Simulated assay, not measured.
Amino acid sequence: MNTQTSAEEAQQEIAEEFAYFGDWTERYQYLIDLGKQLPPFPEEHKSEDYRVLGCQSMVWLVPSGDAQCMHFEATSDSAIVSGLIALVLRVYSDRPARDIVDTEPTFIGTIGLAKHLSPTRSNGLASMLAKLKGYAAQALA
């Protein structure tokens, strides 16, 4: 549970970590390393029900919990996208649904991701965030 840091604090930490790396080659390597640390993803969840559409690579996102605390598991067949997932989960998983809906992903701009992702990856990231926020909005409904 991310009770020790708020979503805003998590975004600040991400910004600080990425600031250590001088160039985007190192930042991409860091993203790939983060993706490798994602917990194992159950094969049975790699279904169309959980697939995030709008991503160039295959991405699956599984919600659990309730409005008080929502947990997400996700994975991708792409190393860089898995790293993006690791960042998104750090900011949004294990939080109240209201916080998830209200938190803007400022870290994407802060660390310069917006400028360094291909349009298809940017669209995929936007799709993943929209789906995650959609699950949170459903929990609040």
Rank of each mutant, 00 (worst) to 15 (best):
V81R: 01
A19I: 07
K46A: 00
S57I: 02
D77Q: 06
L31R: 13
T110H: 10
M70C: 04
H45L: 13
A136C: 03
G134H: 12
A10F: 08
D33A: 14
L53V: 08
L132E: 01
T120Y: 15
A130P: 14
Y92I: 00
M1Q: 09
F41T: 01
D23K: 09
V88A: 00
E44R: 13
R27N: 04
S57H: 04
I14C: 04
S82W: 07
H71A: 04
R121Y: 05
I111A: 04
L84Y: 10
R121W: 06
L53I: 01
M128F: 05
D102N: 14
F107G: 09
L89K: 08
Y92F: 10
T3G: 15
Y28I: 12
F72Y: 06
G22I: 14
D102Q: 11
T3S: 15
R90C: 08
W60N: 01
Y50A: 07
K115A: 11
Q12A: 11
L140A: 08
A7D: 01
G112S: 11
D99K: 03
H116A: 11
Y92W: 05
D102A: 08
A7F: 02
E8C: 06
Y50Q: 07
R27F: 04
K133F: 09
A97M: 08
S57G: 08
P42F: 00
A114E: 09
A74I: 11
V52G: 04
R90N: 13
S57K: 09
E16T: 10
E48Q: 15
A97T: 02
W24E: 02
Y20L: 10
K115I: 07
V91G: 04
E73A: 10
L87P: 05
L117P: 03
Q68Y: 06
A137D: 09
D33Q: 14
S127A: 15
Q4V: 10
L31W: 12
L117Y: 02
I32C: 00
R27S: 04
R121H: 06
Y92Q: 06
T5K: 12
T3L: 13
E48Y: 12
Q4F: 11
E44N: 15
E17I: 10
S122F: 14
Q11R: 03
A86H: 14
E26F: 03
P63E: 05
L89H: 03
I108P: 04
P39Y: 09
